[in-house]
């Protein structure tokens, strides 16, 4: 029988009049990855701070491997690793010194901490940089070091709060590979992200969070299936044509656009059939599309249909950057 590595029920947290969490339940079985997906300010970081004992909830309870984080915070801390949004490593220490310090503060003992530091530097491709002060590290190297610091005590449960925010696409892909490897070793992971593609790639299950509430949960495939849809994209050469085409395609599904590149996006139930009808309609109105695509919905589409707005403005850019890198 699988047991829960993370179990939170009814978490509430308010900062004065601002409700950051409004009754959040999360259950993460051992050895699985939960992606907590939502825009800035949705409450992702607040949830992580409660689960990692940094913040007390106003209401609700949370357990790490059966240990209550409010009643037994010190015991909970020895079960978790946390890597936050801002690579919390000491810039004036070397990579190796950061790891040894974390090992000793986890009470590994000095020689064991040193051995573990070398292991992790090696594993994260930081062996050569291990003797240099972190000040000289690139953003990607800092995140890798931050992640390895979180792993010093081999915690069974790992929290990564927006691990790739602010990284260039190449470093992001590198870090994804490292995280996938970790998960392969059986670590339970709760990952928060604004990047839909990241949740899609790394998470077994996804909880979509918005304004302090979980508004949807399931696997990436389930969330897409719930949308029950195919996305038809039709691009035009200029704004005027696109404007006329809006009237033609509107009856066939949920329309977004036209965007800056005069592209209309239509979420429809029966893609191929509707595509033919759209093309007929456009032909009859004498409107020739410049570009045409039919695709499976992305998580961004899911978020759009759940909340009526995109997850975050940069999401498409990131996806595009990764597509062109691939």
């Amino acid at each position: 029988m699988t047991s829960l590595a993370i179990n939170a029920e009814g978490l509430v947290k308010a900062y004065g009049p601002v409700v950051a969490l409004d009754g959040v339940d999360l259950a993460v079985p051992e050895g699985t990855v939960l992606g907590l997906l939502g825009p800035n300010g949705a409450g992702k970081t607040t949830a992580v701070r409660i689960l990692t004992t940094l913040l007390r909830p106003d209401a609700g309870r949370a357990e790490i491997a059966g240990v209550d984080v409010v009643a037994h915070p010190q015991a909970a801390r020895s079960l978790i690793g946390l890597a936050g949004q801002y690579a919390a490593v000491d810039e004036l220490l070397t990579g190796r010194e950061n790891l040894v310090m974390a090992g000793r503060l986890n009470h590994l003992g000095t020689s064991c901490a040193k051995q573990r530091a070398d292991e992790l530097l090696d594993r994260f491709g930081l062996s050569d940089a291990g003797g240099r002060t972190v000040k000289a590290y690139s953003g990607g190297m800092r995140r890798r070091l931050d992640l390895s610091v979180a792993l010093v005590a081999r915690p069974p449960v790992l929290f990564l709060d927006e691990p790739t925010t602010g990284l260039d696409p190449r470093s992001r892909t590198d870090l994804w590979e490292v995280i996938e490897e970790l998960v392969g070793d059986g670590t339970t992971l709760l990952l928060t992200t604004q990047y839909l593609e990241e949740a899609d790639r790394l998470a077994d299950r996804i909880a979509v969070i918005d304004a302090g509430r979980v508004i949807a949960r399931g696997t990436a495939a389930e969330l897409k299936a719930d949308l029950g849809a195919t996305v038809v994209e039709v691009g035009f050469g200029d704004a005027a044509t696109a404007g006329l085409a809006v009237e033609v395609v509107r009856p066939y599904g949920t329309l977004t656009g036209p965007d800056d590149s005069h592209r209309l996006q239509l979420t429809v139930n029966d893609g191929p059939h509707v595509l033919v009808q759209i093309l007929r309609g456009l032909d009859a109105a004498n409107l020739a599309p410049a570009r045409l695509a039919v695709r499976e919905p992305s998580l961004n589409d899911v978020f759009l249909s759940l909340t009526g707005r995109p997850a975050e403005p940069g999401a498409d850019l990131v996806a595009d950057a990764n597509r062109s890198a691939a």
Partner: peptide, 20 residues
């Protein structure tokens, strides 16, 4: 997915806590 669909950790592991 509901929070109660899965059983809680059946046995709470003994977690060593260093103090003093």
């Amino acid at each position: 997915m509901s929070a109660t669909a899965l059983p809680r950790a059946a046995v709470t592991r003994p977690v060593p806590v260093h103090t003093g």
